[in-house]
Design a protein around this nucleic acid. Structure first.
Length: 356
DNA sequence: TTTCGGTGCGCAACACCTTT
DNA sequence: AAAGGTGTTGCGCACCGAAA
C-alpha cells in the first residue's frame, strides 16, 4: 500500500479524471463519452483475467488506449492538422505516462467512469433557468395591492443571484451523493482495494467534481443576472433591448432608449472586472450614460465611484450598505452614487419612457 | 493594508467549417 | 440544407505580486 507523500503519482484517479476533461487537452471526456465507455469495458474484460496482468499485457493495453483515443479524433481541419488532434495527442501522452501497472489501468477505469458520470450529472442537473428567475423576481416585487414595487428591483436582482447559487448547489449535490454512495459500496467489496484506497479514490472524485461544478456555477451566474434584469424591465413596462451588445472588448447587458435619453446597463456581481473598459465609450455604444449595478459591495471603493463620476455615469447601491452610508453625503458623488430603490424610477425619468 | 493589473481556468455562446 | 465538429471570445472567479 502506498504511503501518502504528496507525490502526484499517488493520486492517479484524480489526475486521469483531470486530464480527461481539461480544456487544454480538448475536453476529451465531454466529447467522446461513448469511446471512453467502450474503452473501459474492453480494459475491464482483460483485467478480469489474471493471466493478462503481466508487463507485456500492460504494454499492449497502453497501445490500445493510445490507438482508441487518437483514432477517435479527426486528424485534419480546414486543410491543416487540427488543433483538436494535437490536444488529443498531448492527452494520450499524459495518460500513458501515469500507467505502469495493471493497477494503474484499474485506476484509469475508475477515473473514466467518474468523469463521464460527472458530466452526466452536471448536464442533467436542473439549472436555474428562466422560470425560476421569474418566480423569484415576481415574489420580490410583490406588493399587497398586486402591482410590482419599483423600489424592490435591486432586491429582486440580488435575490435572483443569491437563490440561484443556493439552488444550483443543492441540485448539483444530490446526484453526487447517490453516485458516491454507490461508488463506496462498489470499492469496499473489491478485494483489490484497501480501506484507505477507498477514501483516496472517493476524495479525488469529489474534489474534481466540485472543481467542475464550481466553474459551471460561475459561468452561468452572469446569464442569470442578464435574464433577471430584462424581466424586471418587462415588469415595469420599460422597453429594453434585451440582448447584450458587444462593443469590442466590452459588453453592455441591456439598453433603454427613450425620448429624453438613453442608458446602457452593466450588471455584475462585483464591480471589479472590466468596468473601466465601459467608461468614456458612451458615444461608441450609442448611449448617453452607462449605469452600473453591482450586487456585492466589497470592492466598490471611493476611487472607483470617482472614476465613474468623472465619466458622468452612475452606480446603484443599497441604502443599507456601507458604501451608501459612507459616501451618500459626499456632494461630489451625489449624481453618481444612487440608492438602489430609486433605480426604476430613475430609468423612467432619465429616458422619458412611459413605464407603468 | 488596500488597490491594481495581470494570469489561468472551464464554461457558454457564437461563428465558421466540414460532412452527410 | 441540416447536422455536427472546430475554433474563438468573453464571463466570473481565484490567485498573486507590485504599487499606492
Amino acid at each position: 500500500m502506498a504511503d501518502y507523500s504528496g507525490d502526484p503519482s499517488e493520486y492517479k484517479v484524480y489526475w486521469f479524471a483531470r486530464d480527461l476533461i481539461a480544456s487544454s487537452y480538448g475536453s476529451y471526456a465531454k466529447k467522446e463519452k461513448e469511446t471512453l465507455r467502450e474503452l473501459s469495458v474492453q480494459l475491464g474484460n482483460e483485467l478480469e483475467d489474471d493471466r493478462l496482468t503481466d508487463e507485456a499485457s500492460v504494454d499492449r493495453q497502453k497501445r490500445f488506449i493510445r490507438d482508441t483515443i487518437t483514432d477517435s479524433v479527426n486528424r485534419t481541419y480546414a486543410g491543416d492538422i487540427s488543433k483538436r488532434y494535437l490536444q488529443t495527442e498531448d492527452l494520450v501522452e499524459r495518460i500513458l505516462r501515469r500507467i505502469e501497472s495493471a493497477n494503474d489501468i484499474r485506476e484509469f477505469r475508475i477515473a473514466v467512469d467518474a468523469v463521464v458520470r460527472t458530466s452526466e450529472i452536471l448536464e442533467t442537473t436542473a439549472s436555474f433557468g428562466r422560470d425560476e428567475i421569474i418566480e423569484i423576481v415576481d415574489e420580490t416585487l410583490q406588493t399587497q395591492s398586486g402591482t410590482p414595487d419599483p423600489a424592490r428591483a435591486y432586491d429582486a436582482l440580488f435575490n435572483v443571484d443569491f437563490e440561484g447559487e443556493a439552488y444550483q448547489l443543492g441540485a448539483q449535490r444530490e446526484p453526487l451523493i447517490d453516485y458516491i454512495h454507490e461508488k463506496i459500496s462498489e470499492l469496499q467489496t473489491d478485494p483489490k482495494t484497501g480501506k484507505r484506497e477507498v477514501a483516496r479514490i472517493i476524495s479525488g472524485i469529489i474534489q474534481e467534481y466540485e472543481r467542475r461544478a464550481g466553474q459551471s456555477r460561475a459561468s452561468t451566474a452572469g446569464n442569470v443576472l442578464e435574464t433577471g434584469l430584462q424581466y424586471i424591465f418587462n415588469q415595469f413596462g420599460i422597453p429594453a433591448t434585451g440582448d447584450p451588445a458587444h462593443f469590442g472588448d466590452l459588453e453592455i447587458d441591456n439598453m433603454v432608449e427613450g425620448p429624453k435619453g438613453s442608458i446602457g446597463f452593466s450588471c455584475k456581481r462585483t464591480l471589479r472586472e472590466r468596468f473601466r473598459q465601459s467608461l468614456s465609450r458612451e458615444a461608441e455604444i450609442g448611449v448617453d450614460e452607462v449605469w452600473f449595478v453591482s450586487l456585492l459591495m466589497a470592492d466598490v471603493s471611493r476611487e472607483k465611484i470617482q472614476d465613474i463620476s468623472n465619466d458622468g455615469s452612475r452606480i446603484y447601491v443599497p441604502r443599507d450598505s456601507f458604501v451608501w452610508n459612507r459616501y451618500s453625503d459626499d456632494s461630489e458623488l451625489a449624481y453618481t452614487l444612487r440608492p438602489a430603490d430609486q433605480f426604476i424610477e430613475d430609468v423612467v425619468e432619465f429616458t422619458g419612457v412611459e413605464g407603468q
